[in-house]
Computed example of a mutant assay.
Amino acid sequence: MSSNDRQHIERVAGSRRARLTPAPGTAPEPVPSEETEDAAPVEGDAASGSGPNDERMRRDVPPHY
């Protein structure tokens, strides 16, 4: 494996993080997935998007708070 076959680190001015170049054989941008319309609905009330325990979970506070 030569150095041309690897990702390279690019410094970004004014940023704390560096950026990697795309890996060889991959696209630089993500490809949107094709969603099917016949996907199973999420369990619970579809209109509000909440389940039977959601309200209790929102009220609960972890002991370290």
Rank of each mutant, 00 (worst) to 15 (best):
R16Y: 12
E55V: 01
P28A: 15
G44H: 07
D60C: 06
S2Y: 05
M1W: 04
R6S: 09
R58M: 05
R58G: 01
R58V: 02
A18F: 02
A23C: 10
S50Q: 14
S48E: 15
M1E: 12
A40T: 11
D54F: 06
G51I: 05
L20M: 15
T21R: 13
S50V: 14
V61S: 07
A39P: 00
E34S: 08
M1N: 10
G51M: 09
P30A: 00
E34C: 03
R59V: 01
R58K: 15
G44S: 11
S50R: 14
P22S: 13
V12M: 11
V12Y: 07
S48Y: 14
E34K: 03
R17W: 13
A40D: 14
S50P: 00
V12R: 01
P52I: 10
A47L: 11
D5K: 08
E10M: 11
E37F: 02
E35R: 11
M57I: 06
P41H: 09
D60Q: 07
H64E: 15
E55N: 10
N53Y: 15
P52S: 15
P63W: 09
Y65G: 04
V12A: 03
P22A: 15
V42S: 08
N53W: 11
V42A: 03
E10T: 02
I9H: 03
R19Q: 13
G49C: 04
P28H: 13
T36N: 08
Q7W: 02
A27Q: 15
P63M: 02
V31E: 06
P30N: 09
M57H: 05
T36A: 04
S15N: 14
P28V: 13
V31R: 05
R11V: 04
V61W: 01
S2K: 07
A18Y: 08
M57W: 07
A18D: 11
E37C: 04
T36S: 03
S15T: 08
P41R: 00
V61D: 01
D5I: 02
A40Y: 09
M57E: 06
R19N: 02
E37H: 08
M57L: 13
G44W: 05
M1G: 10
D5N: 06
E55K: 10
S3V: 03
